[in-house]
Design a protein around this nucleic acid. Structure first.
Lengths: 201, 201
DNA sequence: GTCTATACCTTGATAGAC
DNA sequence: GTCTATCAAGGTATAGAC
């Protein structure tokens, strides 16, 4: 948090400011997910977080900087989630099953809005390289977690690499098609297959 | 073509008009793919196709109608491509291999802009149900072609369903992640795996 | 430090001349 | 039928009062 505000607008904030900044990020996070980055306006965000839109520029110099903060915030949440799984579930295979279930747990939203990372990445990848790094490092978190599980299950380094990529690909594709067809069953079916595949390794 | 113009603006056009309408669709098609639907303005399209933007409304009542025409145009191209494959390659397994190679053949563009259908679907799915049907019927074309190949390879109806879904999921995920990482190798690696998988069926 | 008022630009869409 | 000129609305961003 201190890290991310350093590279944002040079603002020095008190406790209240930090809290307000977070409110903006939270509202933007949801709206970028539900409507997309380009289709979301500052007015939309302002309505949702009760901060006047003119005030946004005290916390973020541009819309892209807000996007960056949103992605970093998501990364931190994902890192926390993966950390928790790592602490709570020592068995690597069981843990991998739980990772496969992450999108399934949100299947209703995923069928409506797609994968929060995948849809944003698809949009941003066309627009600007600005937040490219933040996005790929977020995916790398997932890949590393999967890799760690697979290695723990006895796979070689190369095999773990290969299968982590494979698993992420399937999850991403399932999320995209579940959204396209507005059908959670697509996600459900493919994730069920992934569970079988994990057990076959 | 006659069919699609009927449901668009009530315009009656001559040969020149049809040709101009097609120029608009072609330019919009490329720009929606490269920049996204929301981020593409009529001014952008007008610049690329040498038709004054005010004139667009003679051919399409709204931007959404233009989008619809773009998707229908893509559908016709895909249907033609699949038809050609069907005529040229009678062996179902060989044909399925060729279908798997479709995104691979455009790997350079896919690594930059993602899957033309998948990225559009991810964006549009959040905005409006307007072109939902046109999009899903386009995916259904692919699914049916895959299903037909799989059934021809001796799989039961249910197995063919299941595996067509699985294959489409992998292709879609591979395209998304290739774009995210700006890395054609991701696409290449996953499609290589799909070829192995096809041969294992 | 925080927020209001607003500038300036681009958007999708329209009206009416040719 | 085709296109130019323009609209009202909404976009991001800024300047400056409190």
């Amino acid at each position: 948090m201190g890290t991310s505000s350093r590279i944002q607008a040079g603002a020095v904030m008190g406790r209240k400011g930090e809290e307000k900044r977070q409110r903006i990020i939270d509202a933007a996070n949801t709206l970028f997910y539900h409507k997309g980055f380009t289709a979301t306006s500052f007015a939309d965000i302002a309505d949702d977080c009760d901060v006047p839109k003119g005030n946004f520029y005290f916390y973020f110099r541009t819309k892209e900087e807000l996007l960056d903060a949103v992605i970093r915030d998501r990364s931190e949440r994902l890192a926390g989630l993966l950390d928790d799984l790592h602490k709570d579930i020592p068995d690597p295979r069981a843990r991998l099953h739980r990772i496969a279930d992450v999108p399934f747990n949100d299947r209703h939203e995923v069928a409506q809005y797609g994968c929060p990372m995948g849809t944003l990445s698809a949009e941003i990848g066309k627009l600007t390289p600005f937040s490219q790094n933040a996005l790929t490092s977020m995916y790398s978190l997932l890949l590393m977690s999967m890799h760690h599980c697979l290695a723990g299950m006895g796979l070689s380094h190369d095999d773990a690499d290969h299968n982590a990529r494979h698993m992420l690909t399937r999850l991403q594709g399932a999320a995209n098609l579940a959204q396209t067809f507005k059908d959670e069953n697509w996600l459900e079916a493919e994730i069920a297959d992934i569970h079988d595949w994990i057990d076959s390794l």
